[in-house]
Design a protein around this nucleic acid. Structure first.
Lengths: 158, 158
DNA sequence: GCTGAAAAGCATCGCCT
DNA sequence: AGGCGATGCTTTTCAGC
């Protein structure tokens, strides 16, 4: 799990990453077949990609609506100060809420972009006002997703 | 792959989803051990979750920086019209670019929130101006991520 | 809807190229 | 580095509770 010096990836590695990004539960035998390798060297490559931190993990992609999370929304939150302590306090608050799934600090000072899920409109309103009333929060702009045209896993490869 | 009527999930199903959301490559035997089941019923439950579309897939989580995508940013794009044809044309454009990883239509009319990756600052600037100059685009506000405090897979369970 | 046994398939190792 | 063959697990099916 280092974060280091560009561990040269050849085209087979990139092919492996493409496949696993698309289907992370594929068996090693199937993966090997797709990248034209026999199973043992294929597995060795996968392990190396995991150990160097290029593959950070594998996750099931669960449908939020099926689990009762009807609303996905983003919130652009402006804080009243860019002081380190204020920013960190907000991060702690945001990352503690289970409904906050992502919390990104935005360049330019004192802003955060959050992705949240809510069970319904009332819950969304409650989350928004909890955000608005949180310490040091100046403004909250909610961006409610009505349609997701693309939600690609990971990054482009190749 | 239906999108249907609340297929009642018991606590074991929720436990399975929690585990696979966290480690999507866990073997079925290990999963069964964690949810206190023997392997066959555990596998049947996983298959059922997959078939009903509650589990939509599995993805390797690949480190963008390790693959040369140094910059992740969001773009809030305002269009000059809310006409269906204009919105759809923009969606087609956005989803076609490999650098656009997510494209969400935002409630309130004519806005999209995109998540993009770029190889470097020059590439980011190029993408931003390609967006700004795209047909029907009125304004583009970029939100560059400088720090991601939380990036949780999926949704809260339980 | 579970368990347990059994067959088939897979992961993984050591050795060779 | 990749491939082959052997071994021990894992997956998967099927009978029976």
């Amino acid at each position: 799990m280092n974060r280091e010096p560009e561990p040269d990836l050849d085209s087979v590695d990139l092919h492996i990453l493409t496949e696993l990004q698309q289907d992370g539960r594929m068996t090693n035998v199937e993966l090997a077949r797709r990248v034209n390798l026999s199973a043992p060297p294929c597995l060795r490559r996968v392990r190396r990609l995991e150990e160097t931190g290029i593959i950070r993990g594998y996750h099931a992609d669960v449908d939020p609506v099926a689990l009762g999370w009807e609303i996905t929304f983003f919130a652009l939150v402006g804080l009243e100060s860019q002081k380190q302590a204020i920013l960190e306090a907000f991060e702690v608050l945001a990352t503690t809420w289970p409904e906050v799934r992502e919390c990104h600090m935005i360049r330019g000072g004192g802003d955060f972009l959050l992705r949240l899920v809510a069970r319904d409109t009332a819950h969304e309103n409650e989350l928004t006002s909890r955000l608005t009333n949180a310490p040091s929060v100046l403004r909250v702009q909610t961006l409610q997703t009505i349609r997701t045209a693309k939600d690609a896993a990971g990054v482009p490869i190749g």
